[in-house]
Design a protein around this nucleic acid. Sequence first.
RNA 1: CGGGAAGAUCAGAUGUCCGCUGUCUCCUUGCGGGACAGAGGAAAGUCCGGACACCACAGGGCGGGAUACUUCCUAACGGGAAGCUGCAGCGAUGCAGAGCCAGCUCCACAGAAACAAACCGCCCGGCGCGCUCCUUUUUUCUGCCGUUGAGAGACCGCAGUUUUUAGUGUCGGGCAAGGGUGAAAUGGUGGUGUAAGAGACCACCGGAAACCUUGGUGACAGGGUUUGCCGGGAAUGCCUUAUCCGGUGCAAUGCCAAAUAGGGAAGCCAGGAAGCGCUGCCCGCGCGUUAUGGCUUCCGGGUAGGCAGCUUGAAUCCGCCCGCGAGGACGGAUCCAGAGGAAUGGACAUCAGCCGCCGCGCCAGCGGCGGACACAGAAUCCGGCUUACGGUCUUCCCGCCGG
RNA 2: GGUCCAGUAACUCAGCGGUAGAGUAUCUGCCUUUUAAGCAGAGAGUCGUUGGUUCGAGUCCAACCUGGAUCA
Length: 108
Amino acid sequence: MLRLITKHKEYGEFKSPEFALRSSHFYAAVLSSPSEFAIGLTISRKTGKAHLRNLLKRRVKAWLRLQRDVLPSGFKLNLVARSGAGELTWQDLCQELTDLTGQLRARS
RNA sequence: CGGGAAGAUCAGAUGUCCGCUGUCUCCUUGCGGGACAGAGGAAAGUCCGGACACCACAGGGCGGGAUACUUCCUAACGGGAAGCUGCAGCGAUGCAGAGCCAGCUCCACAGAAACAAACCGCCCGGCGCGCUCCUUUUUUCUGCCGUUGAGAGACCGCAGUUUUUAGUGUCGGGCAAGGGUGAAAUGGUGGUGUAAGAGACCACCGGAAACCUUGGUGACAGGGUUUGCCGGGAAUGCCUUAUCCGGUGCAAUGCCAAAUAGGGAAGCCAGGAAGCGCUGCCCGCGCGUUAUGGCUUCCGGGUAGGCAGCUUGAAUCCGCCCGCGAGGACGGAUCCAGAGGAAUGGACAUCAGCCGCCGCGCCAGCGGCGGACACAGAAUCCGGCUUACGGUCUUCCCGCCGG
RNA sequence: GGUCCAGUAACUCAGCGGUAGAGUAUCUGCCUUUUAAGCAGAGAGUCGUUGGUUCGAGUCCAACCUGGAUCA
């Protein structure tokens, strides 16, 4: 099942990840976690101004909602936005996130 | 039509599907259904001012900070309105604003001097050197002509002769007109005057100050009289004068409060030594004080976490009255985000607007295609300022063309 | 969210309103068999940006930009 990480302490676990995934605009630190798919978002000020950061967060959440039935289970990950991620269009964002989950599914 | 100036206003709309936050409500109480509401003009920068909260505080002074034409508005302001003066602009308009007649300080380079000054210069005097020629004037003498007179002589003219002055250097003094320096050098023009000069004096012009007067609440403006009063700049240099200001900020502050580890109290148990009793002594037992340790209970501080503060307010809209205006008074209506790793997104369609490109048309315009549709995301709340930015409308100014 | 600093040469910093400086680094000579050290010299600045005050701003004033620190 899908779960968003909203507690400060839980983000501390990502300081020593099991493995990491990279794409051109994102970085994901991954831990294994049985029978759930937990995701946290980290979007720093370098990504863009406040309205761009909010837009990116909402779009990632919307994408997760659309894909909730086909997400792989057994992972806990922190998705970090890199510079330039705020300027992505909706179509490019979907493509990149789908590629990332493809990498994740190959690991499991 | 083109180029400007000032102000006001909007920040796409509608529908369908999936999804988020809050409040209310319904029942089959479960991560249920329904209704309603859900970012901005700047939410930004955090540059000012308040509300509110806690801390400090007799009163006053010094120190520190802020502000600075006038009158007003306001809870308050460094904000705003209406004016005044100066500057810029052909103009609509815009920008600036206490005081260098309290004192101190600074003004590079250049220049004599940024002060009460003198380099060149103009003038006077002393001393030294020099003194060619011409002209003019005055004086002395001589000659000639003329006039007058009896004469001596006097007068006029011409010629000659002699002396002095006019040059330069230096010293002392006077002057501030001219030259030159600079961003800036002591009001301007003409005259009188003087050795040369100078508002030293005079006329006119330009300012300034004092007094009187008219208008204005006032800044100030107009008029008149008098005074030669007329020497820069910098207070966004120190400063002076006037007014205002205690500090910290919702991560303020208050309440509830887990686990773990500390603190305090009580009880029980263990436990070493002093004392008392049984008993005069020893052992033993009991009572009992007190280090220490353990357990239980209670209290207090307090962390994670939760709740309050948290959105009804100098509020918004409408009407009417007062005021040139900023704004104020009254009446009515409305409740309009309250999140807390932080809520507004995604997909599709239609219409409107804007922008870009292409095609047609003499122009106005018409058609098609495309567009993360400008800047940008509330975090205690208000009043401003500043900065970013897409349109629309109104009023005004200038230029050109046509009637 | 609040508060407070800083910005000058490639780097670290000075700078009394009057011609922008020091050390390190770089480059070029000299020295040395060569390098290092040493000696001599050179180049390199929109003083974060834009306005204002001033005759004249790195400096004074205002607005903005970019970094950083701090408060649980």
